[in-house]
């Protein structure tokens, strides 16, 4: 197993850094099923691509705790920890 890890690490080092940074964290690509990457400003479902990461994270945390009323986002927010949510929020913020 040790040898395998070393090889895997080698793979990481050899891969282009940009490609690694661009990899969406687990769950992130599902969001655009509802939150369109080109959603209009007046869309009933807000666009998350390019949105401030702190805003997205705060909304998810409030949905999860029930502090912010929701129809469906409370049920989805409960599927992600704070750390997992932060990674998704950061990635979405970096998208155009």
């Amino acid at each position: 197993m040790k040898a395998m890890s070393a090889i895997a690490l080698g793979a990481l080092v050899l891969s282009p850094v940009a490609a690694i940074a661009a990899d969406p964290p687990p769950g992130a690509t599902s969001c655009s099923g509802c939150h369109g990457s080109n959603a209009a400003a007046d869309s009933p479902i807000p666009k998350l691509h390019g949105r401030d990461a702190g805003e997205t994270l705060a909304a998810m945390v409030a949905f999860r705790s029930g502090e912010r009323p929701a129809t469906v986002m409370d049920r989805i927010a409960k599927g992600f920890s704070d750390d997992e949510t932060r990674l998704i929020a950061d990635w979405l913020a970096a998208q155009k």
Binding site: A8, A11, S15, D23, P26, G27, S30, C31, G33, C34, T71, V72, R75, I76, K78, G79, F80, E84
Partner: peptide, 27 residues
């Protein structure tokens, strides 16, 4: 390269009548 462990979301809406929607969601 090695694919990463994914997380997936589903949301399904149903209309019971015009202006009357219900949903099921999961992660």
């Amino acid at each position: 390269a090695k694919p990463q462990e994914p997380r997936l979301i589903n949301t399904c809406y149903s209309l019971v009548a015009p202006g009357y929607g219900i949903s099921v969601a999961g992660v």
